[in-house]
Computed example of a mutant assay.
Amino acid sequence: MSLAAATAGFVPDRPDLGHHAEGLDLADPAFFADSLDPRAPRLLPPAAYRALAFAELEDDAVWTRSWLAIGLGAEIPAADDLLPFTAGHHGLHVQRTAEGGLVGRFNKAQHGGCRAVPLQCRTGTKTRCSFTACGYSRDGAVLPAGLEGPTPAMHQYLGLRPERLLPVAVRAWGPMVRINLDPEAAPPAAAPEGLVALAGETRRAEYAANWKLAAQALAEGDRFAQAPESLHLTGRLATGEAASLALHFPNLVLIEARGETCAVMLQPTALGQTLLRIGLLGPQGRATPDLEVSLLEASWDAWLAEIAARMAPAVAAQAALTRPDADEAVPTNAAGLWLQANLAARVRARPAATDTQPLYATAQGRGC
């Protein structure tokens, strides 16, 4: 059955049937083998950057089994404020509690309330849905609470009984917020010490590159240390200034320079497109009410320019890998090699699929 015909009803990801595209078994260790040689590091085969089946494999092995960076705690300062984030194919949110803590949940609507998941939602592109932020649509901005608590705009996230929604593990990680779809997940590694948010917002930039290409481009540098979940590098900014970098698997890049740290959180919005949520961090002494707006804007401008410069090779690589005749080996950097090795390990380690029912689904042809 073609995808167009299948989308007359709900089309689940079926990991029990395997992940295949372009004549390849994408979960086979052989698919990764040639790209993990440290003597000649190179990108994965093109299907890893353009095939929906590989995005579904990543959903199964990475986005549902890892600690993901999704934003800053300062973005949701008040009780009932809500931060949306779509992890792979799953619509989630984090909300500030009345006691000041954080609670994470799956959204009430995972498929937007549509009678059938539209074709455009199953081709690997997040859509701009005016109805709700579901597992296939783009996330909106942070939703601040009203004077009387949650607002009507939060209904599609919370429903009428949010306490009945499937929970998500959430942790304040320094000034940042990280989540894991497994509510029983072990806590993430300790956060870097002494960092606070210099601004109570994140800014967004979107680039035409697969998230893996974006991560390795942002973390361009020379490897000097690693931990189980992070790689640490040294490098230079486009201006020539020295920088320290850290890539935290799978979607967080920290770039430290000029007494500041730029936190870049990656979120796939299409097979060949990545949204960057960007936060500006610094030592506690810098986060004062007297920090001039003009100085803060100058920092934002400098970091956004740095990110644009780093992302240019990723955009070019994506364009090359999208060509039908793309089959030559493309070199990668230290961050790319480390990222691919971790991805391959996650694919190998995921439990065998024994349940054919997707995590969230409705009967074919039914609404929510």
Rank of each mutant, 00 (worst) to 15 (best):
R65Q: 14
D60T: 15
A61E: 07
D59G: 13
A53Q: 12
R42P: 00
T64G: 07
P41N: 03
G73Y: 03
A47R: 02
A69T: 14
R39M: 11
E58I: 00
D60E: 13
A69E: 04
V62P: 00
F54G: 00
A69V: 04
R50Y: 10
L44T: 00
I70Y: 12
T64M: 10
P46E: 05
S66Y: 07
A47C: 04
D60F: 12
E56V: 00
W63P: 05
L68A: 04
I70L: 14
E58Q: 14
P46C: 09
L68K: 02
G73P: 02
A51V: 11
E56Y: 13
D59V: 08
D60V: 04
G73H: 07
A61K: 03
G71C: 12
F54A: 00
R50I: 09
I70E: 07
W63T: 03
I70W: 09
R65D: 10
S66T: 15
R50N: 07
W67Q: 07
A48D: 05
A51Q: 05
R50C: 12
L43C: 02
S66A: 15
A69Y: 09
L68Q: 09
W63F: 15
I70V: 15
A55S: 11
R65M: 11
A47W: 04
L68H: 11
E56W: 14
E56H: 14
A40V: 01
P45F: 06
D60S: 14
A40W: 08
R65K: 13
L43N: 03
P41L: 09
S66E: 15
F54D: 02
A48F: 10
A51C: 11
P46A: 09
R39G: 11
S66L: 06
T64V: 04
L52Q: 13
D59A: 14
G73R: 15
P45W: 04
I70G: 08
A51H: 06
A40C: 02
L72Y: 01
